[in-house]
């Protein structure tokens, strides 16, 4: 089996943190692979899996609309079944519709494959940001430390969407086929199980 090629969208946000998390997850699963920051459609076309990191979704969206080809390539790859993990801003980018808690409807560019409606900054501003232990059954019994930074929440989910976990009755992690989205930042905690789940999706994808 050839090496697994994972990319982290290198436009803006905590790119290096996601690269490091994925490298560690690969190591834990005893797999060989490369993980790098990607910004060009040629390199994205070759990927087995893509992470959309945390950051500011408006910034990532507006830069992607300037680089139209990159946007189309990602869209095409996700439709073809390439596994993708979106954390925080990445979750927003993947969603079908997004609005802001204070400002309302936003005109930002979205991929729109994930059948959910997102409320941005749903927990409030930075001083409301928090850490908490989450129960994520698909990752096992051990709680997962969720780091929520000006996080969005998932408000409405379509039929094909599985809810991975809720916090205070709010949906904060979802999965829809090859797409995983989290409100929190698994790349900021020391726990690599969410990145491992994403890599297992990649292994599944490569079978076909």
């Amino acid at each position: 089996m050839s090496n697994i090629k994972v990319g982290v969208l290198g436009i803006q946000g905590d790119i290096e943190e996601n690269i490091l998390s994925t490298v560690e997850a690969l190591k834990k699963l005893n797999l060989r692979g490369t993980v790098e920051s990607v910004r060009y459609s040629e390199s994205i076309a070759e990927l087995d899996g893509l992470i959309l990191p945390g950051g500011e979704s408006t910034v990532i969206g507006s830069l992607l609309s300037i680089q139209g080809k990159v946007f189309q390539t990602i869209e095409k790859k996700i439709t073809e079944g390439m596994p993708v993990l979106g954390t925080c801003a990445g979750l927003i980018m993947l969603s079908k519709r997004t609005y802001d808690k204070v400002v309302g409807e936003t005109k930002q560019k979205l991929f729109g494959m994930l059948d959910v409606v997102i409320e941005r900054n749903a927990f409030g501003r930075q001083h409301e940001s928090f850490e908490v232990d989450l129960e994520i059954p698909v990752l096992g019994k051990e709680p997962f430390r969720g780091i929520f930074i000006r996080s969005p929440i998932v408000n409405n989910v379509g039929e094909s969407v599985t809810i991975l976990t809720k916090f205070n009755d709010k949906i904060v992690a979802v999965k829809q086929n090859n797409i995983i989205g989290t409100s929190f930042h698994p790349e900021l905690s020391a726990d690599r199980r969410l990145h491992e789940l994403f890599i297992k999706d990649i292994l599944e994808f490569r079978k076909y």
């Binding site: 946000g13 950051g55 780091i147 929520f148 900021l188």
Partner: peptide
Amino acid sequence: NLHNEQLVQGTTLVKRGFAHMQKHG
């Protein structure tokens, strides 16, 4: 500490984490 024992705000991780989201911007 809010709501329950586990939820904590303003930790070093949450504060530094915010700065991490600004990277490359």
